[in-house]
């Protein structure tokens, strides 16, 4: 008994402990499997109801006013434009100062790919999330003079016109997105649904 057990550890030179490796691998696999419920619980819990259409009563919206509705958890600006507003939107000087005056970037349904970026000219409907870093722009109504109505972003000064089109030389890269919308009656606007015969997958837009 002079050769103590503990010193015999080195009697198997070169031969790796295969059994030990298999067992360790088995333990490691089990530990990884334990992570499954943890990871599962982190899955985003998106509300299915958020995808249902939202009806907005616009009967109390006066010309030149703007209101904010909530659709899919996002603020949606609903703007009732005056005839002057509409004239301004087609003003050459303004158009020359826009990054994407023709809405060529996919930020709206096809039925809003027009000079007023909406279904009917009178009502503008825009997701009120700045395409720069996501702040909510502030509406500034037309008050006469050369103070043209527009949206100003409080965070880094991006400017959009009354059709949600982004000005040149500001940090925001794209026009404000237009959600699918339809006027179901003269006083009721439905967000999240397209007019008959049209369809639009909002998640296909370039960027919010």
């Amino acid at each position: 008994m002079t050769d103590h057990s503990d010193t015999t550890e080195s009697t198997e030179p070169g031969r790796r402990d295969f059994l030990g490796m298999v067992t360790t691998a088995g333990v490691a696999a089990g530990a990884c499997a334990c992570a499954v419920p943890f990871v599962q619980s982190l899955a985003p819990q998106d509300s299915a109801s958020a995808h249902l259409p939202v009806d907005v009563d616009i009967s109390k919206l006066a010309p030149g006013q703007q209101m904010t509705a909530v659709w899919q958890g996002k603020p949606v600006f609903i703007l009732r434009r005056t005839p002057e507003d509409l004239k301004q939107l087609q003003d050459a000087a303004l158009v020359a100062d826009l990054r994407d005056p023709d809405s060529s970037v996919l930020q709206q349904p096809s039925y809003a790919k027009n000079w007023h970026r909406s279904f009917v000219p009178e009502y503008g409907v825009y997701v009120g999330v700045c395409t720069h870093l996501g702040c909510v722009p502030v509406y500034e109504a037309t008050t006469g003079g050369d103070n043209k109505g527009r949206y100003n972003c409080p965070c880094h000064g991006s400017k959009f016109d009354l059709a949600g089109r982004v000005r040149k030389g500001v940090p925001a890269p794209y026009n404000l997105p237009v959600p699918p919308h339809v006027l179901v009656s003269p006083t009721q606007l439905r967000l999240g649904e397209s007019p008959k015969g049209e369809s639009f997958d909002f998640s296909s837009i370039v960027q919010i």
Binding site: V36, P37, F38, V39, Q40, S41, A43, Q45
Partner: peptide, 12 residues
């Protein structure tokens, strides 16, 4: 009930 994998976490 509703959190996926939640019942396992709670049981553990």
């Amino acid at each position: 009930r509703q959190l996926s994998g939640g019942w396992l976490l709670r049981a553990m």
